[in-house]
């Protein structure tokens, strides 16, 4: 099993590479289509079902600036797959170059416990946890914008900001259990 490393290759000029990992391969594609629309810099999108990535393309693969794990909260498998894939990342990635994107968080079919597990996972790795509305066009656009915001920093395109710096501001925390309805 080969670890994916953040600094083993040289970065390209005015370009950023993002890797979307999703076991169900549903949201990935629409997100990728929207991501490559970005014009101010070149965005290369790589898709994977899970990590580790195959060894044969190792040479041609560019340096990955940001790894995004997409978790569908209505499926336990999706969460487990992401958890398993995390092991194939070099620890250097966790200095701000990993983020989680959760879909279906507001669905009745998603148990609260699973969201808590995802939150704790992200919090323990000091990674941001983004929520996305994958079923509406506006939701996809917004998710894309947010990923680009992080990607720009992670790829070093924003002066005076580094991935680690941003991740300090955006990393997930475990929220308190707010009673509903609480009217105290």
């Amino acid at each position: 099993m080969s670890l994916l490393k953040p600094f083993s290759k040289l970065p390209g000029l005015n370009s950023a590479n993002i890797l979307l990992v999703e076991s169900e391969e549903q949201f990935q594609q629409s997100l990728a289509d929207a991501l490559v629309e970005e014009t101010t810099f070149t965005v290369n999108v790589r898709l994977a079902k899970s990590l580790p990535l195959p060894v044969e393309n190792e040479e041609s693969r560019p340096r990955i600036d940001l790894v995004v794990f997409i978790i569908n909260l209505t499926s336990e498998l999706s969460l487990q797959s992401a958890e398993a894939s995390l092991k194939c990342l070099d620890p250097g990635y966790f200095l701000g170059k990993v983020c989680f994107m959760v879909t279906n968080a507001r669905s009745a079919a998603a148990p609260v416990e699973r969201l808590d597990v995802a939150r704790k996972l992200a919090a323990s790795l000091h990674c941001p946890l983004l929520f996305a509305e994958d079923q509406t066009p506006d939701g996809v656009t917004n998710a894309t914008e947010r990923l680009l915001t992080i990607l720009k920093v992670a790829a070093g395109l924003v002066p005076m900001a580094t991935a680690l710096y941003l991740s300090n501001l955006t990393r997930s925390t475990v929220p308190p259990d707010i009673e509903q309805p609480s009217f105290n």
Partner: peptide, 19 residues
């Protein structure tokens, strides 16, 4: 309303920022 407050505190935790 206090209920909208309680709702918001929960909703912000799963909001995508555009909805």
């Amino acid at each position: 309303f206090s209920c909208s407050e309680a709702f918001l505190f929960k909703f912000l935790n799963v909001w995508d920022g555009s909805l």
